[in-house]
Design a protein around this nucleic acid. Structure first.
Lengths: 204, 204
DNA sequence: ACACACCCCGAACATATGTTCAATAGAACA
DNA sequence: TGTTCTATTGAACATATGTTCGGGGTGTGT
């Protein structure tokens, strides 16, 4: 793919992102600084021949960048590996995690950055991203995010006939009792953990 | 929103999913079983007035279902929380994790399901999903997936002048030496960890 | 030199497409 | 019944849009 072709593809992607639909040929011409629609058409023909673009002939604004199957399916999950097969062989793929789908259902959810070692024994370490699904309710024994007297903390929720406690998962810490006159709020339930350790993927 | 309006919206969404672009007014008419484009235009005007649809007047196929901002930005990350503010207040949001973007760059990567406790001290527990970026190279001290004599394992890679070792992160396990006559292969680098614990989100 | 792929122009063409408008049908209501 | 409002229709209109054609330019490799 030549430099110009990459710029064209990028322009289409950006336009679609901004407007929710694809540009017309003449809009591309303006955006790319060319003056003839036929020039753009020729460029599009080449891109389509390369298979990175889909079009329906005669249909206005039918440009659709080809998306790889993985994007729709999600990221493959490898469970056990059958002896002697390549890792990514079909028989090893146990399923797919549809990250995109997850994103769509993440309404109102957010990541909380873990601060201390109080949940160490649950494998939750400082710097981890904990996905919190906002909710005023939480079941006994579930992990959640709470705000106790202004401070936000991630703990296991425990309700006994002696009252409510927030349990750390680390025997160097003590259970925290929630008293009647404390200001206490359930922020949400712990759904998922994300840990970005090694380089190579820059977020934010 | 009336029944007919919902059907219309659904038709547009389905069409877009199938074709990668939005239907024209006449295509909608056919699909919905009405015979006049002006009928469809009237219906679209109503939907747009309700704010569930965006259009650019005079622009072909410019129908764009209104999407929430989160979908484009990613999932917000909350770091420290300013005293007295609601959790999701703007001043608490430290950034966004563009999961979608990540997916796009995940070329060839996959998740490996962790099996034992050998990496416990790194907070990597059985059942965790470890994202592996395929690579034949790995640096000293990095965590990666390896295949040693047919068996796949997740360990820290260590190269000394005494040879190559795969180090567990659990003092109940011994470092594994990689001998000359072993069949040994670097599968890839450990990039990210995903843990799905609580219910409410069903993957796969 | 030649062939070939890529890039560009401007004009003309055919049609796909959004829009407007007068007329009709149906439902809700006094 | 008549009135009013909305939904629908079919035709006509204006234009946005993809396409074609003939021409030219530049670079690369043979």
């Amino acid at each position: 793919m030549t430099n110009k072709q990459e710029r064209l593809l990028q322009f289409i992607l950006d336009f679609h992102k901004d407007n929710g639909y694809s540009p017309s040929i003449r809009e591309i011409a303006k955006g790319m600084g060319v003056s003839s629609p036929s020039t753009v058409k020729a460029m599009l023909d080449r891109l389509e021949a390369q298979g990175v673009l889909n079009r329906s002939s005669g249909v206005a604004r039918s440009l659709a960048p080809v998306t790889s199957e993985e994007e729709d399916l999600g990221i493959p999950v490898i469970g056990r590996i059958v002896a002697g097969t390549p890792v990514m062989a079909e028989e090893n793929i146990e399923g797919y995690i549809p990250v995109k789908e997850f994103l769509k259902n993440s309404n109102g959810g957010f990541f909380l950055i873990v601060d201390g070692y109080s949940m160490k024994d649950k494998g939750i370490l400082p710097g981890d991203y904990v996905f919190i699904q906002p909710s005023k309710e939480i079941s006994n024994g579930q992990i959640g995010a709470f705000r106790l007297n202004g401070e936000v903390t991630l703990k296991t929720f425990k309700k006994t006939n002696e009252g409510v406690f927030l349990l750390p998962a680390n025997n160097e810490f003590e259970p925290i009792p929630v008293n009647e006159d404390d200001s206490f709020e359930v922020i949400g339930r712990y759904v998922m953990l994300l840990r970005l350790r090694e380089q190579g993927y820059k977020f934010m």
